[in-house]
Design a protein around this nucleic acid. Sequence first.
DNA 1: GCTGAATTTTGGTCGTACCAACGTAGAAAT
DNA 2: ATTTCTACGTTGGTACGACCAAAATTCAGC
Lengths: 282, 282
Amino acid sequence: MLDGRNRLNLDGQLAEAVPEELTDGPSPLNRAGRRASDALLDHLASMILRGELITGNPLPSERELMKRYGVSRSVVRETIIGLAGRGLLKTSPGFRPVVNKPDYDAALDSVGRLVAHLTTDEEGVKNIFESRVFLEASLARWAALNARKDDIRELEERLLRNREAVGVRRIFEATDVAFHDVLYTIPRNPVYPAIHRAYVDWLRKPWSSIERTAEIDLVMYAGHEGIFKAIVDRDPDLAEESLRRHLNTAWEFVRSTFDFQARAGGTARPSVSPSPEPASGQ
Amino acid sequence: MLDGRNRLNLDGQLAEAVPEELTDGPSPLNRAGRRASDALLDHLASMILRGELITGNPLPSERELMKRYGVSRSVVRETIIGLAGRGLLKTSPGFRPVVNKPDYDAALDSVGRLVAHLTTDEEGVKNIFESRVFLEASLARWAALNARKDDIRELEERLLRNREAVGVRRIFEATDVAFHDVLYTIPRNPVYPAIHRAYVDWLRKPWSSIERTAEIDLVMYAGHEGIFKAIVDRDPDLAEESLRRHLNTAWEFVRSTFDFQARAGGTARPSVSPSPEPASGQ
DNA sequence: GCTGAATTTTGGTCGTACCAACGTAGAAAT
DNA sequence: ATTTCTACGTTGGTACGACCAAAATTCAGC
């Protein structure tokens, strides 16, 4: 029996919470051109957001849902896809969708998919990167002014780890990110760490394509050290300045990679397809 | 006639751009558990982002698409829903989906749907608001250091308009937003104005529920004036400080509204169904 | 008890069918 | 000839049934 296992905790709730929209009459267009899948979507979305569907649990099977709500499988599937698109479900082909209550991370993540396309040209990456420098510089300033002792201890520790990783690409990158991350946690607002993860994610591609040598790592590390010292010295202007300089240096490396890749894939549409040729069959 | 109207310009392109994934073999699961709708989605997404599908134009009919790509209607529909979820299409029941190339605004907008749920409690609003204060304070500092003459002229003009609107709720709010908006445009990075619109959007609900009197408007205006003067005087610290103080004052008003509204919540649908009754069956 | 084969369930896709809302085109009326 | 009305085709929304292959589950055999 699979009674209490992969059935979520919605055996009861669902049954009665079924919106009238989904149960009224035969099955034609539900009132006012509202899609059945939209109604179901709203319903499930609401359940997820209210915590009635536990995060991490799989959704009931599609066939179960269609029985439960009296809709066709098409509707169920479209609903699921819609929810997934909104970040309320994680789907992977062949598996049950998993409930994914959104937090700041999920929110940023959903932008990510769009931002991804904005970061295909240098212009887009530059805009994003610039905003990052701006924010992070402010965070550095804030840190210099407000960091607690344990914040500084954490910063120092991660700085050390970064030092030790010089020359070891993967680890250096990780410790690099980890160091910067402290800056985002100091204000103790969950929004910032989420933003940081988002930045790292968005800029990962161009970032990871930059050259890496022990010398370059050392330059980067030196930047971190400078930032750290300025914060320890409680010098906001210097902290900001150091961080700006550090990230701008990094940007130079990133930018240099664009001179290469910026070949075929221009910004607008040089478009590989030579001409639309409106004449074809049809 | 409907010849060149609601057919987009993709008669030619589509035909040849069809990815092999969608054409190979009979029709079982396309390689590696990849959903056909995902493949189609990527394909269309790419076309939209590359401008091959013109923004504002309707997509071809579903039946047309299924013929074109050799997939079933289910796949086409699921693709469309997926694209809509990503903000690449605007759909309204009964009408053809409309191409909607995303920009920073659209990106932020897609987060909005998720953020909306995070702003239902004071905690969430506070986090968001705090991040706004932080960013805007930095922008004020930046403005004090780098604003051009015409930036300052613009700022002054909007400050005046704001002054004139004291006491006239709707107009005051608009000019208020307009004033702040200048700060976001000064760095000349399209990301910031988008962020501002997003903030305004997210915080609109709690914001618009605050009390409004001529006196309060005057306090707000005074805040704007202080910020403006600090920027004109090229005093970054004062500019930042003024802005912080200004927004924190506003926050006090916002916060006071939570003591009231924190009743039923009433985000989406006041919903006829009174309560989910978390204790039923199972 | 644990591994592996047999079986059931489930997601992915297809195809067909029906409804209601439009829009078009042709027929009918002015 | 212009307008009006009606029949028909198209389109999006939904339902149902059928397959396949990959999971999940069960069961047999070691």
